[in-house]
């Protein structure tokens, strides 16, 4: 299986992109909740497809997820993953009940706001015209979620590029991962726009 070939410079540029995007999203989350939000150092994971799911987390773990498709000059999926308990915490911070239609809708709206902040930062940094489609909320096994999405974005190739950042809300147990899954063409376009194309 061919290992993906990106230079350190290209991976650094992608990490920086993830850092700015998720920084913007963290600010949006903090102002929505009135709490501080901490940000982890982003990872740019360039992996053979077979290893991509395991790199994101334990495949059988049940998680809540929000998917936001991005269309325009690049196509990509923004994916937010919450441990189900943390999604419940987030719902209670917002005053709604988890696992209900209203709860799912609130999680979807948070995904929408965070995802949009993320891609706005990305769009202005890489000078891209892109826009999000409405979010979709699914609670299921992490492996099934990530693999199904990777089938859509990079399925025909053997490697995936995943940008992964962790966000944690201060004072409560509420962490989420923020992932950008560009399509194969989207990765090349992004690197080109960042001035580190191959």
């Amino acid at each position: 299986m061919s290992a993906p070939n990106y230079t350190d410079l290209q991976l650094d540029a992608m990490r920086e992109l993830a850092n700015i995007g998720s920084g913007n999203a963290a600010t949006a989350l903090a102002s929505m909740l009135g709490k501080e939000v901490e940000l982890s150092v982003p990872r740019a994971l360039a992996l053979p497809l077979a290893d991509a799911v395991d790199a994101v987390g334990p495949a059988e773990k049940t998680v809540s997820s929000v998917v936001l498709p991005i269309f325009g000059e690049i196509d990509a999926l923004v994916l937010l993953l919450f441990p189900t308990e943390d999604a419940a915490t987030l719902c209670s911070l917002l005053g709604v009940e988890a696992g209900t239609e209203v709860g799912d809708s609130a999680i979807g709206e948070i995904g929408n706001i965070l995802g949009t902040s993320y891609i706005n930062a990305l769009a202005s940094m890489a000078n891209l015209a892109i826009e999000p489609r409405p979010p979709h909320v699914v609670t299921d096994m992490l492996g099934a979620i990530v693999a199904s999405l990777l089938s859509q974005t990079v399925g025909e190739t053997d490697s995936a590029l995943v940008l992964d950042t962790g966000l944690a809300v201060a004072d409560v147990q509420c962490e989420l991962s923020f992932l950008l899954l560009p399509t194969t063409g989207g990765i090349a376009e992004l690197l080109g726009r960042l001035g580190v194309g191959s």
Binding site: V67, P69, I70, F71, D75, A76, L77, R133, P134, P135, H136, V138, D140, A144, I145, S148, L149, S151, Q152, T153, G155, T183
Partner: peptide
């Protein structure tokens, strides 16, 4: 399964 109603491309 069809887990998502949304997606990218013709996929």
């Amino acid at each position: 399964a069809q887990m998502f109603e949304v997606g990218v491309g013709s996929t």
